[in-house]
């Protein structure tokens, strides 16, 4: 039976949700599903990975994987691949995973497919091009194959299994301990996390100035249980931190309701939010592409409508 591996990121003792999504899918493919988790908290994380379908978890709690970018993890993975010969290795399209998968590809000579939103078998995966307008199925050759899967592609579902934990004992050569993380400035915003919020309110260039993002925060507060996001353009302009970015690069969201203010709808943005159940868009330009996918489109000035909407909601909520 083909062996399918899922590389699971564990950060601050928490398993990346995308790993659980991918495990759920891997189970469905009918192979022998195993997971690899490297860095502090990984051994404890094995329990949860088992519940989502990993029969074996190769785990190491060694700090070296958290302290140094990509090289130690790619080395350990490569050693494990040589020993256990998986057919397919699945990663989430996340920061550290992308770095590690790229390095592994060089070492194993594996073809690598990125941005998959479905895995069709151990040798075939599905992605979209042209901002999601065209679906392409790609056949992969060689062993192992590597695929990176976009977060939120599958609904995570526990199967209630239990994983056999195999400690990873790989020596990391000193010359792979080079790119060292010396400081971390990572804070989770208050309120629900962007990728988990049932309601997402986001802003683009049409908000004209960084200070106007305050209005989005106020609206999120008035509605409750909402998170604020942004387009790449305003993140690049330095209006809001990168953590706000929704799109091809950035976070993928699938909320119940997505409200876009002053966002034209570049494909790079659309890819990250078109899975929303309901889309509401406000934009001055009636030809903005966002209106082509919005359930409700208002052609108007976001800066005029925002204060009105905040008042309206406060009034209706009493």
């Amino acid at each position: 039976m083909a062996k399918i591996w899922v590389f699971a990121e564990v950060n601050n003792g928490k398993v990346d949700t995308a790993a659980l999504e991918i495990l759920t899918k891997a189970r469905e493919l009918g192979g022998e599903v195993e997971a690899v988790a490297l860095g502090p908290g990984s051994t404890d994380a094995a329990k949860e990975l088992g519940q989502y379908g990993a029969t074996t978890v190769y785990a190491s709690d060694d700090e070296v994987y958290a302290d140094y970018v990509a090289q130690p993890a790619a080395h350990a993975l490569h050693e494990l691949v040589k020993e256990h010969a998986p057919e397919l290795i699945l990663f989430a399209t996340n920061y550290d995973s992308r770095d590690i998968a790229g390095r592994l590809s060089a070492r194993t000579g594996s073809t690598l497919m990125s941005n998959c939103f479905d895995i069709l078998g151990t040798d075939k995966a599905r992605t979209t091009i042209f901002g999601g307008a065209t679906v392409v199925d790609v056949a992969l050759e060689g062993t192992p194959k590597i695929a990176l899967v976009r977060p939120k592609s599958f609904e995570p579902e526990a199967s209630g299994g239990e994983a056999n934990v195999m400690p990873v004992e790989v020596d990391i050569p000193d010359d792979l301990k080079k790119a060292k993380r010396v400081e971390r400035h990572e804070e989770q915003a208050s309120g629900p996390k962007l990728e988990e919020a049932p309601i997402v309110i986001s802003g683009g260039r049409g908000l004209q100035d960084a200070s106007n993002f305050e209005l989005l925060d106020q609206l999120a507060g008035a509605i409750g249980n909402a998170a604020v996001g942004a387009t790449r353009a305003v993140v690049d302009a330095g209006w809001v931190p990168y953590a706000y970015q929704i799109g091809q690069t950035g976070t993928t969201v699938k909320p119940g309701v997505y409200i876009a203010f002053g966002i034209s709808g570049a494909t790079q943005h659309i890819v990250g939010m078109k899975g929303a159940k309901t889309i509401i868009a406000v934009n001055k330009d009636e030809d903005a592409p966002i209106f082509q996918i919005a359930d409700l489109g208002i052609v108007g000035d976001a800066l005029k409508i925002l204060p009105q909407l905040i008042e309206e909601i406060k009034t209706r909520k009493g």
Binding site: A139, I305, Q308, E312
Partner: peptide
């Protein structure tokens, strides 16, 4: 790696698009 199949994605349909005449906020 080779593309073996190409198809059009299921398109999201455009909904209602209205001009804001002052009632936009209430409509939302």
């Amino acid at each position: 790696q080779n593309i073996v199949d190409i198809s059009q994605a299921e398109e999201r349909k455009a909904g209602e698009v209205i001009e804001d005449d002052g009632s936009g906020a209430a409509k939302i």
